[in-house]
């Protein structure tokens, strides 16, 4: 396999909360030892419940959140230790699309100002070129050139998300973190944005880390999927393999929670009960054991390593070999 575009190794992001002069506070392990690669032109899905650490993971790759330890390499260059002066150059090659299109655009800046700021920051083109490029970007995401004079409050959610995508594309990045870019949108609009991402990916050869919890969206868009639970990887496989042949009980539970279009179809489902345990006091051994219907005593004792169980298919479950989770 060719060298991956982004390579993440044992990445940890820990936050200390409630630290005062009198108490050391508690450590929240938002991301706790995650490793994966994103290939060139690949769309990698990152799924998990709310609170599983997927957003933090995405942001720490771009160093919007500082990683506690571990390594992120972009085109072979270590990102986590880059000094601020060199970080800026990296910013034109890695971009992010946000979840909430109502919060991610500055309400006091026109669309044109927002987009040309990205160009200004990276000294792309002259003033006249930039106006031209802003128009091109708007067309690229399916908006008329004339909307550059408009302010964000004049647009619908889907249109704003297009503007957010245009901003990310403005600096010609090779890699984009898409942080749940459609979960705040109406279902009818979601499809349009997903198709836009799909088109852009083919047109521009983008690599995308697509963070989401809608499994049907992930299946449609992604080549490979990483399943995250409480800051750790539970399972990773190609999308087709993961959906047809889940090997981790948590993956199975996520698949079972997704609605199926055929109401007559009866399924035997794994339903998750209770809430995610606190990432400041994760369970011993396998972090999923407290909610796993197949948990045995041994699950509390060792942290299950990610084991290869098939071509590009890895799972972190000590019972993966004996459980049959296919429908």
């Amino acid at each position: 396999m060719a060298e991956p575009l982004v390579s993440i190794a044992d990445l940890k992001v820990h936050f200390t909360v409630g630290r005062t002069m009198f108490s050391p506070g508690t450590v929240v392990r938002a991301v706790d030892g995650v490793s994966f690669d994103v290939g060139r032109g690949e769309v990698l899905g990152l799924v998990g419940e709310s609170g599983s650490g997927k957003t933090t993971l995405g942001r720490s790759i771009l160093r919007l959140v500082e990683p506690t330890s571990g390594s992120v390499r972009f085109e072979g260059e270590e990102v986590t230790t880059l000094p601020p002066s060199r970080l800026k150059r990296l910013r034109s090659r890695m971009q992010i699309i946000f979840q909430d299109p109502y919060a991610s655009l500055n309400p006091r800046m026109s669309v044109g100002q927002t987009l040309s700021e990205a160009l200004e920051l990276h000294a792309i083109g002259t003033r006249a070129d930039r106006a031209e490029r802003v128009g091109d970007l708007l067309e690229q995401v399916g908006l008329p050139r004339a909307v550059a004079q408009r302010f964000p409050h004049e647009f619908s959610g889907g249109q704003r998300q297009r503007i957010g995508i245009a901003r990310a594309l403005a600096v010609n990045p090779g890699f984009i973190v898409a942080d749940e870019p459609v979960s705040a949108l109406d279902v009818s609009i979601q499809a349009q944005i997903i198709n836009l991402l799909q088109d852009l990916r083919q047109e521009l050869g983008l690599s995308i880390l697509f963070i989401g919890h809608d499994l049907s969206v992930i299946e449609f868009l992604c080549d490979r999927v990483v399943v995250l639970y409480l800051g750790r990887i539970m399972e990773t496989a190609t999308a087709a393999d993961l959906y047809a042949n889940p090997r981790h009980p948590y993956t199975r539970a996520l698949l079972d929670a997704a609605p199926v279009p055929d109401p007559r179809k009866r399924r035997e489902r794994i339903t998750l009960k209770g809430d995610l345990p606190s990432p400041s006091a994760p369970p011993s051994g396998c972090v999923f054991r407290t909610r796993c219907p197949f948990a045995i005593a041994a699950c509390a004792e060792t942290v299950p390593p990610l084991e290869t169980v098939g071509a590009r298919h890895q799972v972190a479950c000590i019972r993966a070999g004996e459980l049959d989770l296919t429908e």
Binding site: S92, Q95, A103, E117, R167
Partner: peptide, 16 residues
Amino acid sequence: REFVEAARALGAGGAR
């Protein structure tokens, strides 16, 4: 807010 984070992701400095 996310629009501030977006500007930071584009490389905007403290003063900007």
